[in-house]
């Protein structure tokens, strides 16, 4: 199921992210269920689709495509995340054909975190093409041709997603790129984590006219330490003091409860401005159903 079909029907689209394991996800049956599949199970029935990250933070793991296919086999709708960091234009196009052949319906096209942020710091960064170009290329594959204009025996049929960071300064520069992504082929957007409804409002005032659905990106702050860490180490994200303070005001055992409360507060304020939610629970997938039930 393409997410675009849901948006077209006016659905408020909910997605949640899982990061593939550093290891294999060999088959549906037998052996312990890997963390990423466990997390998917936690949100089953509460989300429309599951984003599967592509060697997130440049840390080498199971590939997004393989994990997406395995999750599809388990009855989930994956959003296959594809970054430009590790593969050139030949490999990216080939993987898009592969994704479609293996039953994937949704692709999220991203630039990718830089190599030096991960666990293989000396790897050669590829960045042969950028996310705007990737979207345009993916659109071309949907229309039956590769980026060089060569005809495909069978076109892809992928819903194309992209990302935008509402926190970015200057915002107009970020939105200039967002417009380029839409022109290139982006059909829906998921945002970077935002903790300030005013920041979201500032963006949506300018993006309403673009006419593309936007999902509010939610990274759940699990502890005051994590909030501080994100402010110091995760570029493009601002965790406000009130969240850090509130997370610090409760005992360790009550943090999940507090995180639910904070996240609900933010969602309630931001929900009227968006067409969906995108959770990035970073291991706390179990609180997604709690939040969704409370909404």
């Amino acid at each position: 199921m393409k997410l675009t079909e849901l948006f077209d029907k006016g659905e408020f689209v909910i997605t949640s992210e899982v990061g593939p394991v550093k290891g294999c996800l060999r088959s549906k049956d037998g052996g312990a269920v890997p963390q990423c599949a466990q997390e998917a199970e936690m949100v089953r029935g509460h989300v429309h689709a599951i984003n599967v990250t592509d060697n997130q933070s440049a840390v080498m793991r199971l590939g997004s495509l393989a994990a997406s296919v395995r999750l599809k086999e388990r009855g989930f709708e994956p959003v296959y995340q594809m970054t430009c960091r590790d593969r050139n234009r030949i490999a990216l196009q080939s993987d898009l054909l592969g994704a479609c052949s293996l039953g994937i319906d949704n692709v999220l096209c991203l630039t990718g975190d830089y190599t030096s942020l991960g666990d293989h710091k000396s790897a050669k960064s590829v960045f042969d093409i950028d996310s705007v170009q990737l979207l345009k290329i993916a659109k071309g594959l949907n229309e039956g041709r590769d980026m060089m204009g060569n005809a495909l025996t069978q076109s892809t049929n992928l819903a194309l997603g992209a990302v935008v960071n509402p926190n970015f300064e200057p915002l107009d520069l970020q939105l200039l790129k967002m417009e380029k992504k839409i022109e290139a082929g982006a059909e829906f957007f998921q945002t970077q984590a935002v903790y300030d409804p005013a920041v979201f409002e500032r963006m949506t005032k300018k993006t309403e006219k673009f006419g593309v659905p936007i999902q509010y990106g939610i990274v759940i702050v699990k502890s005051p330490q994590m909030g501080k860490f994100m402010n110091e180490n995760v570029s493009g994200v601002n965790v406000p003091d009130w969240i850090i303070k509130e997370m610090g005001s409760v005992s360790k055992e009550d943090r999940k409860k507090k995180a639910v409360e904070i996240t609900l507060k933010l969602i309630r304020e931001i929900k009227p401005m968006v067409q969906g939610l995108h959770f990035m629970p970073l291991g706390w997938s179990d609180i997604v159903p709690i939040i969704m039930k409370a909404l």
Partner: peptide, 11 residues
Amino acid sequence: KSLLNGPCGGA
């Protein structure tokens, strides 16, 4: 990242 069409979201 040698991006040609504008910044990534990371600045």
